[in-house]
Design a protein around this nucleic acid. Sequence first.
DNA 1: TATTCACTGGGCAATATGCCTAGCAGTACG
DNA 2: CGTACTGCTAGGCATATTGCCCAGTGAATA
Lengths: 164, 164
Amino acid sequence: MAIDHLDGRIIVLLAREPRIGVLEMSRRLGVARGTVQARLDRLQSNGVIRGFGPQVDPAALGYPVTAFATLQIRQGQGPDVRAHLATVPEVLELLTTTGSGDMLCRLVARSNADLQRVIDRVVGFDGIVRASTTIVMENPVPLRIIPLVEQAAREAKGTRPDPR
Amino acid sequence: MAIDHLDGRIIVLLAREPRIGVLEMSRRLGVARGTVQARLDRLQSNGVIRGFGPQVDPAALGYPVTAFATLQIRQGQGPDVRAHLATVPEVLELLTTTGSGDMLCRLVARSNADLQRVIDRVVGFDGIVRASTTIVMENPVPLRIIPLVEQAAREAKGTRPDPR
DNA sequence: TATTCACTGGGCAATATGCCTAGCAGTACG
DNA sequence: CGTACTGCTAGGCATATTGCCCAGTGAATA
């Protein structure tokens, strides 16, 4: 659950050079290959590292418009709405939230005009009472994890702060 | 920019079994190794595939609470606010948006109580006028890309729909 | 028709992997 | 105090994969 400093360095190294092998990692980190191997196995079975899936850019795929939709759901329709939204490819993520909305939905579309089509498809479902949409203009901080990993590793107890 | 059917199959295969090698992929897809290699290179230089960074679960790192903060920024303070937020490890993502808020900010924290600390740090900056926060409860559809890739590949012109 | 392009199928040396052993230090526990 | 136990190091070894090369083929294009 908690990661130590070496774990942190492994994750950061992996984030910076994803195609690196275990052997090369062990060289860079100055530890034995078996150690890196064991750490990686542990991090994965821990669930800290969920996987190494390719990070696909929707914009490069022809979907340059990103938006967030806040949905209000009719009582008890939650599960149905989830199932509905899961069938829409343009729905990249769905979260249930506190506050005035009930769900937050990350969307992409081919254009602003196409976004209308996507939203129509999203809200064209009985359980959805109301939807309000916000278009994303810029992404000054793209989804990142390294700073958090570094902080988590720094806070690890009993680990020297990167001797090399 | 546009991907064809084989590209789609490569991405999907890679998403399902990230540790798979090029050779094994070529076997599964029934094409020559060099073809897969060339497609992968092209997808990466295209920017369709940004990378293969490890997908780290913040919850497993000790940050099980996710929240979204909508920020209102004082005129002209945008760049400063961005720089400020970039220094906060708990800020996983920052987007500028249309609508009543100016920025949307994805946060994680160690607990609901800890979220207060994070928010204080986030809004403890001069350019931020107001912040409203929504806590994420569930994540029925985790960030995904496969359905979109499949749709993009399906819409590709002149490609047979997966003969095998 | 000639050219270009993507793909095939193969060959090669260099490298990495998975799996193993053995030794060693630190730590927890009886 | 002695005894596991754990995590790390260091190395060996067979197998698999990689990166890089080539020549040939078919289809689209100039």
